[in-house]
Design a protein around this nucleic acid. Structure first.
Lengths: 222, 222
DNA sequence: TTTTGTGAACTAGTTCACAGCT
DNA sequence: AGCTGTGAACTAGTTCACAAAA
């Protein structure tokens, strides 16, 4: 176990790349458990997604010693540990801000429900949308009622899927309502207090990265 | 200009983090140009999104010298340069694989059209969907016809928005059709030849990263 | 003067390689 | 024997700091 913890929050000591990989490991372990596999070595795990075995061990070492030397990891146990580390051992309430096409698609995305996330509501200001439900039955509420909803029901995570022009404004609203983790799909840079964790999914940046690849080096494989 | 180019493709010499930032710079420059700003310094640019000025200069240095010492960068010129570097100086044809809710939302996402990307078609195998159009008029074609479409119309980029179980299979289909850049929204790891660039947008990983933040260090800001 | 472009210094992240446990 | 956990070595990425240009 790590020494010299200077009371800095764990989230600052653990690289974000590590936590991303933990999610990937968890997904893989879930599949292995379903397949009835009892134990797995870091080497076997590493081969699944082309990765280095030492890296997997290092990633896990941030949180403890979960392996059995000479054997590997007990799939079921490691999976439980990872769920706990990632905070997935209890349900998390998620709201989607913006009931446009993207917002509704996200709200209905079945992948979310799977790992303990529960989409509880969408919020929008468009009177034509407020009062409706998404295909899968998520209610669309007025953004005005967000704050009350947050205190009454509790919101763990907000997904921002509003047009770029109002993104900052809506973000401020969420933060004021006490939400401290936001997944942002709107383009552009947003400013937010350090106490709030903001993750970006920037579709334009992703596509332009592909465009760059095509523009250069795409051809000559030599 | 860089020396010692050993004919490795540019895409391997330039870190992906750099190209991601180039997209961000481009977006900012577009706004500045619209606002009528003539020149901008790396320092000013860096302050927009909390970033280091030297980093911006280093990022640009991979591609040439675009600045004027003592002045900064001419907004219009740098923007044009970045568009060229990112391969955005000509239209790019994009198809969406999977006409589910997410696929349709992505196909209709207005942000894509903005920077030179043109969604030309969606593909699906569901007979109920094939023949239909998305809200904004993107036709849904049968996946069977993908290959013919690719040779006839040309496809630069494919967006994968199919269920995880068939993702690998559909990816193989795209690659066989000659597409060399794929933006993947399906969960799970996919295997693909090195000649194909695969970018992942993994919503579960993103959400779980937020969950981790909430589970640890979320509270104690001290 | 101001601000770029860039080597040097630094920091973060990855991989190696092996001691130590089972 | 086999595999973990981890210091050491390495690699990649960022920031500093300053000479050179306008």
């Amino acid at each position: 176990m790590k020494t010299g913890n200077k009371r800095r929050p764990v989230t600052e000591q653990v690289p974000e790349l590590t936590t991303n990989r933990l999610s990937i490991y968890l997904r893989c372990l879930t599949r292995l458990e379903q397949a009835g596999v009892e134990t797995v070595s870091s080497k076997a795990l590493a081969e699944q997604f082309h990765l280095n075995a030492a890296q997997i061990r290092k990633d896990l070492a941030y949180f403890g010693e979960f392996g059995v030397r000479g054997v590997g990891y007990v799939v079921r146990d490691l999976r439980q540990q990872l769920r706990k580390i990632l905070g997935l051992d209890h349900r998390l309430k998620v709201v989607v801000l913006g009931a446009g096409k993207l917002g509704q698609a996200l709200a209905d995305y079945p992948g979310f429900g799977r790992e303990g996330f529960e989409i509880v509501a969408m919020f929008d200001t468009d009177p034509a949308k407020v009062g409706q439900h998404s295909r899968s039955g998520i209610p669309i509420l007025h953004s005005r009622t967000l704050r009350a909803f947050a205190t009454r029901t509790g919101i763990d995570i907000a997904v921002l899927a509003v047009p770029g022009e109002v993104a900052q404004e809506v973000l401020d609203l969420i933060v004021t309502a006490g939400v401290r983790a936001v997944l942002n799909f709107s383009p552009g840079s947003l400013r937010v207090s350090d106490a709030v964790k903001l993750k970006h999914v920037d579709l334009t940046v992703s596509l332009e990265g592909l465009s760059f690849f095509l523009a250069h080096g795409g051809e000559d494989g030599a």
